[in-house]
Design a protein around this nucleic acid. Structure first.
Lengths: 153, 153
DNA sequence: GGTGAAACTATAACGTT
DNA sequence: AACGTTATAGTTTCACC
């Protein structure tokens, strides 16, 4: 897909808020015919613009009330160390996000656990039981002001 | 909903990865009857454990290649200032996440824009044109190691 | 907790401009 | 080549057992 059209963006804006809408309703809300609507959504899926359709769960309702931003810096930055870190991040379900930021060997992680006890276990297994970390600083999230997955398309 | 059962967790694990699965397939994969499966999913929706069903879009494919973690600290922390900040965060589509962290007057924001130009506009309108900010530090995201919305239930 | 039937929807094949 | 139309198979949803 070379570039998104305004039609595509309109579809994405709706589907990013509610993907259970029927094709007919989606077509109405975006001002296109049902057949065009259906074909464009398909094209967005095949182009990978829409990567999946998922249920969003509420962290509080799912009893994940210990949330933190964890900043870690790798003491060593050789390929093997970095690869092992990335693999582990991918496998840990408690880690929802991990971003590398410019200008440092820092990674910003979003971590969710049930409680402090579970976080401590995570910390011991993942962060402490490794020689690859320089500094680890945990910032407890006290309030979630905003958390959306809708991209500003 | 008092507490999630193992059945509920099984349903959530599947639906958080694919919500277009049919009730029959979902029942098979979670080892319950179709009627029980359907009723429990309904209960999860009504209890707000499942908050919505959405399409996930790929930021690169949607041409949102300027991503940053922005740390801001409020210079003033009176109710009006904080409220205005929270309102603005809610209205800005570029801000996907905003967390308050313990022990500081800091907020961690996840921001996505098309490019630097768009971010500069955002910065000028949102961050600079206000007297309420103490420090603002932007950390450009160079690599997304992981980004999922699936909670570890 | 199971069963079945009705209404609705997705999907693809076929026509049309 | 893009759009509209139609038929059908499949799914959701609800009432009842």
């Amino acid at each position: 897909m070379v570039q998104l059209t305004n039609q595509d963006r309109a579809l994405l804006r709706v589907l990013q808020e509610d993907c259970r809408i029927t094709n007919q309703d989606l077509a109405e809300r975006t001002g296109m015919s049902t057949s065009v609507c259906w074909r464009r959504v398909r094209a967005l899926e095949e182009a990978g613009v829409i990567s999946s359709y998922v249920a969003l769960a509420d962290p509080d309702a799912a009893d994940l009330k210990f949330r933190a931003i964890v900043q870690v810096s790798l003491a060593r930055t050789d390929t093997d160390t970095v690869r092992a870190f990335i693999d582990e991040v991918g496998q840990r379900p408690e880690v929802l996000q991990c971003f590398a930021v410019a200008g440092t060997s820092d990674y910003h992680l979003l971590v969710m656990c049930r409680d402090l006890e579970e976080y401590n276990r995570f910390y011991d297994e993942f962060l402490f039981e490794r020689s690859c970390f320089g500094q680890v600083s945990m910032h407890l999230i006290t309030r979630t002001i905003k958390s959306v997955v809708k991209l500003p398309v």
